[in-house]
Design a binder for these strands. Sequence first.
DNA 1: CGGTATCCCAATTGATACTG
DNA 2: CAGTATCAATTGGGATACCG
Lengths: 110, 110
Amino acid sequence: MEMIEEDLVNVRPFAYAMSLIDGKWKVLILFWLWKKEILRYGELKRALGTITHKMLSGQLKELEKDDLVIRKEYPQVPPKVEYKLSQKGQTLMPVLQTLCTWGTDHMDDK
Amino acid sequence: MEMIEEDLVNVRPFAYAMSLIDGKWKVLILFWLWKKEILRYGELKRALGTITHKMLSGQLKELEKDDLVIRKEYPQVPPKVEYKLSQKGQTLMPVLQTLCTWGTDHMDDK
DNA sequence: CGGTATCCCAATTGATACTG
DNA sequence: CAGTATCAATTGGGATACCG
């Protein structure tokens, strides 16, 4: 049958997509921003309930690095920072919604 | 603003879907089975290249438990075991393909 | 208020050896 | 051939303290 790994199956793009949304809280953050449009750091933290400080800033930092969310810092004391979805982030949400819908349809399978 | 976690954002179904496909190799396995229809254990292992024995059987076991793949064992020596997508697995693939396509479109962003 | 750094524990994964 | 078992290495995440 002679199968070489190569790209009979090219999942590189999928792996890329997955790498953007893995991390325990990323998708939850994205969904909140999708729904609320703009949230401050503290609002996001309260919304997510049990997330730790470290995780939230870490996940946000990665989301920003990957260009899925945009961080806006107001130069004032005390600090004020707002987060919202980027254009790229916006395009991702319908796809995640699709997966969410699939989940809804199959959670009670078997 | 008073945000309670609850289900302003209901990602339970998404979390469910993610739980089925996390694990380093699961999606890759699913794509191969999608493409090839039926593969023996050894074929799958060669196809995946660097996957370890332990990982492959582990991931397959979970995929089978979650009803995404079907395992068929032939009672013979030496053993012969075939894997293929279940009906549920089939329905998932177009969704994953969507994510894959999104990845293709955005891998070279920025 | 928003973010970083450190330490520690829990969960995943890899290497290797063994089995029917 | 198709697994399972064991142990080591790596990774991810929580708690906490500190900084601008």
